[in-house]
Structure formats: structure tokens, C-alpha cells
């Protein structure tokens, strides 16, 4: 076996190990080099949307993901929530993922107290935000909330009647809020587009995992007014709100990983081409 054949037949475990070492190294030394994150129009439009809302305005944020996507989607959830809390925009939280309720409840409490210490705010449950919990069958829940939030959510996550929450006073359906931001890791994004926007025509923006991002670009400009794709999108949002957090910290590791994979693709292809040539020439 010549060197070219060895390059093509490289055991994938060496690739895993190399990638792990590179990503770990890049993460440990993330402060030694910075990645210049440029903001894109699709992310900026969500930031501008929230930024242009008056204090006291209400939006719905749907956290449709579970702990398996937490690492990827939590940074964008945090960035959006922090901007809302800083601006005084009130947030109605909901989750359409059956494994997400506990995680979202914890996120609200954690990011609320972070906002308190960072911006000297006093984020209060029921007034500045509420979490109405989880209900199954996302499509029907999205349709139901378009008629009245109380159809599927007569009570919030803590079993308080929705009518007893100050934030829900005067809020019946999507007409009474400024828009919806759905942060999702699955087909719920489709449901927000086809049941939410196409039926009720409310302003809708999506935050999605990297795997999903390219699928939702075609909706930009018609069904959705903004799109945050994966960590890069979250890092852009962190830059816009002026706070470097998990997504920004992970960008050096992302760059290192992408370069490593490009390197391995090149090695594999060069090995393939050269081994084919050497077979043709009989060497």
C-alpha cells in the first residue's frame, strides 16, 4: 500500500481524535485569537425588530427545543432574552417540545437574574415575562394560540390562571402581541410557518440549528422576517447586543474544526486522485 492509498484508507478514528484535539485546543486557547464575526441582514432584522419595540411591548418566544440542542440554541435564546429584559420588552414564553419545559423554566430564571445583575433591572415573573408551559401537538397549539392563548393554556407553568398574570392582561391571541420568535430544533419551525404565519400572518422570526438553517432561507422575506442559524447566528446576535458569551467563545473552535475538516477533505481527494493516477500508470 503506497502513501496515497494510506491517505484514502485513513481510519476514521484518527480523524475523530485529531478533530477532538484541535477543537479542545482551540477552545482552551480561545482568548489567544479572536474571530471577527460579521453580522448579516437576517440576524440584524430580528435585533432591530426587538430594539425598535417600545418598553412594555409584548412578544411571544417559543423555545421548541430540548436539552439535546441546548448547547446550540441556548446562546441565541439568552441573547434575545437579555435584549428584551434590557429594553423592557415583555416576553411570553412557551415550549412546544415535550422535553423542554424544565429547561426553559430554568433558562428564564437564570437569564432574568443575569439581566438584573448586568443591567440593574428588576425582572419580575408575571410582569416582565411569563412561561405558559408545554402542550403537545405543536400544529394545533399554534392554531389554538391564534384564537386564544387560553384554549390550550388556561394556566401557566406554575398553575396560575393566565388572567391573573399582569403580562397577559389584554392579550387574547397573536393580534395582541408584536410578533413571534420561534427558536426551534425540529419540524416545529415548519408548523410556525404554515400554521402560524400563513394562517394568522403575524410577524415571525426563526432561530434554528445549523443543520436546519439552509432549509429556512427560502422563507426569508415572506413568511419570516429574520433568521438566526446556529452558533454563527447566535454569535452575531451577541455582537449586536454587545455581549460576548457562549457562541462568541466557541467561534475559534468552530473555525479550527472547519479548517480541519477542509484539510481532511483535501487529503482524501488528493489521495484518491493520486492513487487513481498511479493505478493508471501501473506504478
Amino acid at each position: 500500500m503506497n502513501i496515497f492509498e494510506k491517505m484514502v484508507g485513513l481510519d476514521r478514528r484518527w480523524v475523530f481524535l485529531f478533530l477532538f484535539v484541535v477543537v479542545t485546543g482551540a477552545y482552551f486557547f480561545r482568548n489567544s485569537f479572536s474571530v471577527n464575526v460579521t453580522t448579516t441582514r437576517e440576524v440584524r432584522s430580528i435585533y432591530d425588530f426587538v430594539e425598535n419595540l417600545d418598553p412594555g411591548s409584548k412578544i411571544l418566544i417559543s423555545f421548541d427545543y430540548d436539552p439535546s440542542s441546548l448547547a446550540e440554541l441556548h446562546p441565541m435564546s439568552r441573547a434575545i432574552l437579555m435584549q428584551c429584559f434590557r429594553k423592557g420588552v415583555r416576553v411570553i414564553g412557551v415550549t412546544l417540545s415535550q422535553y423542554g419545559a424544565g429547561m426553559v423554566e430554568e433558562a428564564f430564571r437564570k437569564f432574568g437574574s443575569e439581566a438584573d445583575s448586568l443591567y440593574n433591572t428588576h425582572v419580575e415573573y408575571g410582569k416582565d415575562y411569563c412561561f405558559i408551559g408545554y402542550r403537545p401537538y405543536p400544529g394545533f397549539v399554534i392554531l389554538g394560540m391564534g384564537e386564544n392563548f387560553r384554549i390550550f393554556f388556561p394556566r401557566d407553568y406554575y398553575d396560575t390562571p393566565l388572567d391573573d398574570l399582569p403580562i397577559m392582561q389584554g392579550v387574547r391571541n397573536y393580534d395582541d402581541i408584536e410578533g413571534v420568535i420561534a427558536i426551534t430544533s425540529g419540524t416545529t419551525a415548519d408548523m410556525w410557518v404554515i400554521y402560524g404565519n400563513a394562517r394568522y400572518n403575524m410577524p415571525l422570526a426563526l432561530g434554528v440549528t445549523g443543520v436546519m438553517a439552509t432549509d429556512y432561507y427560502p422563507y426569508l422575506g415572506n413568511a419570516i422576517f429574520g433568521l438566526i442559524g446556529g452558533w454563527k447566528g447566535a454569535a452575531e446576535y451577541e455582537k449586536l447586543i454587545g455581549e460576548k458569551d457562549a457562541a462568541t467563545a466557541g467561534m475559534p473552535a468552530q473555525v479550527a474544526a472547519h479548517l480541519t475538516i477542509v484539510l481532511f477533505i483535501l487529503i482524501g481527494n488528493i489521495g484518491f486522485l493520486l492513487s487513481r493516477r498511479s493505478k493508471k500508470t501501473g506504478n
Binding site: 477532538f20 477543537v23 479542545t24 477552545y27 482552551f28 440542542s69 441546548l70 448547547a71 446550540e72 440549528t209 445549523g210 443543520v211 438553517a213 439552509t214 442559524g229 446556529g230 452558533w231 454563527k232 457562549a246 466557541g250 473552535a253 468552530q254 474544526a257 472547519h258 475538516i261
Partner: peptide, 22 residues
């Protein structure tokens, strides 16, 4: 483009676990 985004997604999860482990 999809592949690039997929790599980013997987590396995000790896970094998330590394944050937890380390």
C-alpha cells in the same frame, strides 16, 4: 452550504459537551 452548517451544528454540540466536561 448545508454540509458547512451541519459541521457547525455538530461542533457546537461537541463544544457544549466540552464546556460541561472541562
Amino acid at each position: 452550504a448545508s454540509f458547512g452548517y451541519t459541521v457547525m451544528a455538530r461542533i457546537s454540540l461537541l463544544v457544549g459537551r466540552m464546556q460541561f466536561l472541562f
